[in-house]
């Protein structure tokens, strides 16, 4: 096994450990475990960044140098990396660790899928002609930062609904320790805004690329169509908030539906025929 993939499979377990600490902290309500969770996640992020750089360097040594963003394995790793990075920034900004229990497990799951699924090859492969484009990096980065922001919004949505369960059923200490619903709602809104802008950028960079590779900026390929559906779902969500002032539970449910659409755009579309077969 190559060194970068070894590190990356270890990072999977680091994120698992971090997830367990975050969940443990939330359920027991003891802040004591919080810093463990955060620092483990940070250590995982640093190790993962190191492995990504290593992989990049390795590809150059193989004479097929390209950014590690070119197949399903690499995109899953980058997705997990973006989730953890974005999450740690949010944690640092809002100074609350509750969200970790809802977000870091996603990073763990994507890493585990990349590292241990027999369908996902971790080998560094050269770029086929269609992928040899300067737009590859900007397209993949913008899309996955967007997806990561939607992951965080979805985690906040779950948290919101969970917090709602505690209402009127007597005190449940760990539910009470979750942030106020207004704060969750506001945070989810901000995450969706970031995700929406990056998804828009991702669709635009993808179109520019498609225009230079296939001669058509939009060809209703399943992946394109599903990214549009995802975009429409989040656009509807933002409109219902701006125009109708929908908040709270409805927004939480929409952020979960939106994320389901993101996941289908990412994974499900591979089962449909189309041009994006490399991801």
């Amino acid at each position: 096994m190559v060194i970068n993939t070894t590190i990356l499979s270890w990072v999977t377990f680091i994120y698992l450990a971090s997830s367990i600490f975050y969940i443990f902290r939330m359920v027991t309500g003891r802040a004591f475990w919080g810093p463990f969770a955060s620092y483990i996640a940070l250590a995982g992020l640093i190790a993962q960044s190191f492995a990504l750089i290593l992989r990049w360097v390795e590809s150059y040594k193989l004479g097929i140098g390209h950014a590690p963003l070119s197949n399903l394995y690499e995109s899953l790793i980058f997705f997990a990396w973006s989730i953890v990075l974005l999450y740690l920034i949010v944690e640092w900004r809002i100074k609350s660790r509750n969200l970790g229990a809802f977000v870091i497990p996603f990073a763990f799951l994507f890493m585990a899928y990349a590292s241990f699924s027999p369908d996902v090859s971790s080998r560094i492969q050269p770029l086929i002609p269609a992928l040899q484009s300067n737009w590859l990096i900007s397209h993949v980065i913008t899309c996955f930062i967007g997806y990561a922001a939607f992951t965080i919004a979805c985690g906040l949505g779950f948290m919101y609904l969970l917090k709602g369960l505690g209402k009127g059923r007597g005190p449940r200490p760990f539910l009470r320790s979750l942030p106020d619903r207004e704060i969750l709602d506001e945070l989810a809104y901000h995450s969706v805004v970031i995700g929406f802008i990056f998804l828009t950028l991702g669709i635009i960079t993808g179109s520019v690329w498609a225009y230079s590779a296939w001669g058509s900026y939009w060809s209703w390929d399943p992946k394109e169509t599903w990214s549009l559906i995802t975009w429409l779902i989040y656009a509807a969500m933002l409109h219902s908030r701006f125009v109708r002032d929908w908040r709270g539970k409805r927004m939480a449910i929409m952020s979960i539906i939106g994320f389901a659409s993101v996941l289908f755009t990412y994974f499900g579309v591979n089962y449909l025929p189309g041009l994006h077969s490399y991801f």
Binding site: W220, T225, W226, L228, I229, L232, I233, V269, L272, G274
Partner: peptide
């Protein structure tokens, strides 16, 4: 439009 697009895929 979303449902139609899904059909189309």
């Amino acid at each position: 439009i979303a449902i139609a697009s899904i059909l189309g895929t």
